[in-house]
């Protein structure tokens, strides 16, 4: 059994992370999950939130906009539409976004497709706002 996981985070526009890590924690659609080396094959859809990964004593995190994660043979692949570096996020703008989006959600009740999209945007904004 290998001691490391090979983590790849890929978006349509770039390969964001391609590194050896010891632990990956991610925002699954049904709740947080953690992956250590030797994990059984695993597929999950992701919610917008923070992907955390540990390298030695360092723990880094990355905001991902939902997507899909797959674990097999100690390879972790995360496919997401977009990522953001938490250090560059403007939390006050995110709080305003939350307010606007909640209003829009109220206005577009009944339009399932639009609601799904707005809900996704809202989750991203909430994740942004939660950065300290």
């Amino acid at each position: 059994m290998a001691d490391n996981l090979h983590l790849k985070v890929i978006t349509p526009l770039a390969l964001i992370i391609d590194e050896q890590v010891e632990l990956v924690e991610g925002p699954g659609e049904l709740g947080e999950f953690g992956i250590l080396p030797g994990h059984v094959p695993f597929v999950t859809t992701l919610s917008p939130g923070f992907l955390k990964y540990k390298q030695g004593s360092d723990t880094k995190s990355l905001l991902i906009h939902g997507g899909l994660a797959e674990v097999s043979d100690d390879n972790v692949r995360v496919l997401t539409d977009s990522t953001e570096d938490p250090s560059t996020i403007d939390t006050s703008a995110a709080k305003e976004d939350i307010y606007k989006l909640e209003k829009q959600i109220e206005e577009s009740q009944g339009n399932a497709k639009k609601l799904k999209e707005l809900d996704h945007q809202l989750k991203i904004a909430q994740a942004r706002a939660s950065v300290k």
Binding site: T44, T45, L68
Partner: peptide, 18 residues
Amino acid sequence: SGTDYIYEPKRESIIGDI
């Protein structure tokens, strides 16, 4: 071939998504 995955949420819902 190969071992099947563990799915979260369940497989039908993942397939419907992906």
